[in-house]
Design a protein around this nucleic acid. Structure first.
Lengths: 202, 202
DNA sequence: TGCAATTTTGCAGTGACTGCATGTTCGGCG
DNA sequence: CGCCGAACATGCAGTCACTGCAAAATTGCA
């Protein structure tokens, strides 16, 4: 599904180079965090390993955290598009379950990158605040998409934002549960969580 | 309910002074943010207005954001205690609705402080990431309390964390809805949100 | 090939945050 | 009451994230 969107399109040399640089920075950041831990990594190191100047780093990411997390606008749009198109017989909550689970699963292209991301981001407690901060962006994008799908004006109804926020929270709770040594496998727990949600949390 | 816990108890001169300093710093931070906006305030200013050295500021708060938000361990414990004690005929979700709504309402002592906090924290978009980061602390405290109330071991069941995370997300969604110019009053929306939750989000 | 727009880079500066060493204050105990 | 150890405040020096600015390099296009 729409993996093409993540690739090229509008492919001048300029655009391609920017994507490469961005990716190189993200990759360098992930590897360095993996090697030394988030706190011990400096933005200069990341820039150096990516082959750009220290100043250029901040042309691509507004903060060290953002470089490690690395969520691109394209990804956001891709998820939003997936949510916007209604699948027959699938409720918004069910769509969200599918899409959010897909965000965690190392599927499609970039299998290694996704796996690496997941491993490192979830293994570094220092990133937790930045990760939930990043969720705001995801929530906003998905909320707008769901509003369009339901045909309501932005902010006219509480329901789209509520549904999205709660779904994200459910996934995050499962991740947190995992990190605190909780029981069960992540994917299975996410399924259970959404079942609970649909049942009104008992 | 348990407003006493927030006050004195263990009241040597030392402890009292620490509380006063902490409070002075929090108040100074709030006022300064109100006057000039979060970005334009420096930790030195906050310390100066509170009458302590710049270095001492960081003995009380780990970051500028934390000083503005100012959530104390006592508050956390107080909310946790409120959740832990089961009220007959009240489900966990209903307890959470009551307690989280209470966090927003300028009630009890410190009416002005609470009102000021709410106004400033919600009016400053730059604080949004820090606020959701702070929610992690609240979530952890409430999760532990709910686990105790339900008599399950920490991490043994997904449900406590899921319930707490989802309830917090619901409240946050209402706030976000508000800030984005959404419809309705906050308190009424929170009620509606928890009704939706209990109904399985439709 | 040359021009205009975009991007990279270096430089200098601000301010958050930390470790350490030192002075100051508090609480208890003889 | 006075003394001592612990807790706390402070100053200092340093690191590093992040920013604005202006010059240099690169790219797209005529």
């Amino acid at each position: 599904m729409s993996t093409e969107l993540l690739n090229d399109e509008a492919c001048g040399l300029r655009e391609r180079k920017k994507r490469e640089t961005r990716r190189a920075l993200n990759l360098a950041a992930l590897d360095l965090v993996d090697e030394k831990g988030f706190a011990a990594v400096t933005t200069e190191e990341i820039a150096a390993r990516a082959g750009v100047s220290a100043r250029t780093f901040f042309n691509y990411f507004p903060s060290k955290e953002a470089a490690v997390i690395g969520t691109t606008a394209e990804e956001l749009e891709s998820y939003a598009a997936a949510l916007e198109e209604a699948v027959p017989g699938e409720s918004p909550l069910e769509s969200l379950r599918r899409i959010l689970a897909g965000m965690l699963a190392p599927a499609s292209i970039d299998r290694e990158l996704r796996a690496k991301r997941r491993r490192i981001l979830l293994g570094e407690p220092a990133l937790a605040p930045a990760l939930v901060g990043n969720n705001i962006r995801i929530e906003n994008a998905l909320t707008a998409a769901l509003e369009r799908r339901l045909g309501v004006k932005a902010g006219a109804s509480l329901q789209p934002r509520l549904t999205v926020a709660v779904a994200i929270a459910a996934v995050r709770a499962c991740i947190e549960h995992q990190q605190n040594g909780g029981t069960g496998r992540l994917e299975r727990n996410i399924d259970a969580a959404f079942d609970h949600l649909a049942a009104g949390l008992r």
